[in-house]
Design a protein around this nucleic acid. Structure first.
Lengths: 216, 216
DNA sequence: ATGAAAGTTGAACCGACTTTCAACTTATGA
DNA sequence: TCATAAGTTGAAAGTCGGTTCAACTTTCAT
């Protein structure tokens, strides 16, 4: 048999290693095959959406037999769910580095938005899959946004401590976080997925509004 | 035959009167049947989502025969598209009245958000259908949001004229409009669909942020 | 009254897709 | 070397739901 990949006991969100309960690949060969399926699925779901996508087409793109699919995933839905976790991580990983370069709390959010806009412009499939998760994998969808909102709220709370942003109670901070996130997502749709404006310009405009407010 | 309903020449978005090309009901009896199907579809799609919904189930809820469906709609997708237009109008109609009561441009947006939060809390199906349109009826989805964004942008531009909000060029105004809209939608998801917080409290917190900005 | 347009019915057709499975291949630990 | 676990294969089963259609009913203008 192939070499052991893990010593067992991996976390539920150990992405590509735990697609469906008890179906984790046990050799490097299996892991590679599973990765091929995941990659093909990203393309297929991104292009056609969940409904129009078929397992036949996905396995065909991945150059594996139809039956192989069920070695790693319980169902089409389980595959999608695995992909959602995977993509949620990809977005996070693409945005995370900017926080190191930020001069203050608000600058951090501006950079995060710019990075996000850049990411969705180059990965419309990812945007689409996360959005479609609302219907195909509601738990994964909710998890993604609640986690993201928590991170934003934590950053805002820290920035409040630092005196970078105006003080607010926990509730107002949560409202701010969801407002920021929604703003980012919709600017991503309009100026990343549909349009192709310079991320920095858009982020600058949004950031200015956020910094100074709308009052004259 | 039944009495004539229209003199012809209605617009494409004359909702329930023009579901699929050449399938408009020609009598009051037909209009009623079509309405029953639309109402049943709202429930069905809202509960189960597009994929899990079936025409059999929809016509069954509506108490009409399966075949009747095809008298008014070309397909399941066409039904969904008709519903999207219908719902887009419902949201607009529910929010519109608040603008009369607003004291200024920013107050108008605060009231609009509160009204929207209240609406989605009581009509989760509508929220869900518009979201799912991204995949089932992309054109309708885009139309809904571009129209909504244009309305917001127009209000902002007017408020700028009135000196209620800070001046901005056309591009920044569009960014602001999409940012506002995204904020509203996500606050609707978090505090209307998932949670049940008082719309006025949430809208007040968001409005404060929007008015004064985040700077200390 | 009557005929023709409008509307209604539901069984049956049809194609498509997910999922299963038993045979086969590959890789490796002992 | 060879026994064994892991992985792969693809034909076929089984299911399901959208769509069609020809017969039937209702309504109303004349």
């Amino acid at each position: 048999m192939g070499e052991r990949l893990t010593s067992g006991g991996e976390r539920a969100h150990n992405t590509a290693m735990m697609a469906s309960e008890g179906k984790a690949p046990r050799t490097a060969r299996g892991a590679k095959t599973m990765r091929k399926i995941l990659d093909a699925a990203l393309l297929e779901f991104g292009e056609r959406g969940f409904n129009e996508s078929s397992i036949v087409s996905i396995t065909s793109r991945a150059n594996v037999a139809l039956g192989t699919f069920y070695t790693y995933f319980d169902s089409k839905e389980a595959l999608f769910a695995a992909l959602v976790q995977d993509m949620s991580g990809k977005v996070r990983d693409h945005v995370a580095p900017v926080f190191g370069e930020a001069t203050d709390g608000l600058d951090a959010e501006r950079r995060a938005l710019a990075a996000y806009l850049d990411f969705v412009a180059h990965h419309k499939e990812v945007y689409r899959i996360i959005d479609e998760a609302e219907f195909v994998d509601p738990a994964g969808f909710r998890d993604h946004y609640e986690t993201t909102a928590s991170r934003i709220a934590a950053r805002l709370a820290q920035a409040e401590q630092n005196g970078d942003v105006a003080k607010a109670d926990a509730f107002a901070t949560e409202v701010r976080a969801w407002a920021l996130m929604g703003m980012n997502v919709f600017l991503g749709l309009r100026f990343g997925v549909w349009g192709k404006e310079d991320p920095d310009i858009v982020a600058a405009a949004a950031s200015r509004m956020l910094h100074d407010g709308l009052k004259p």
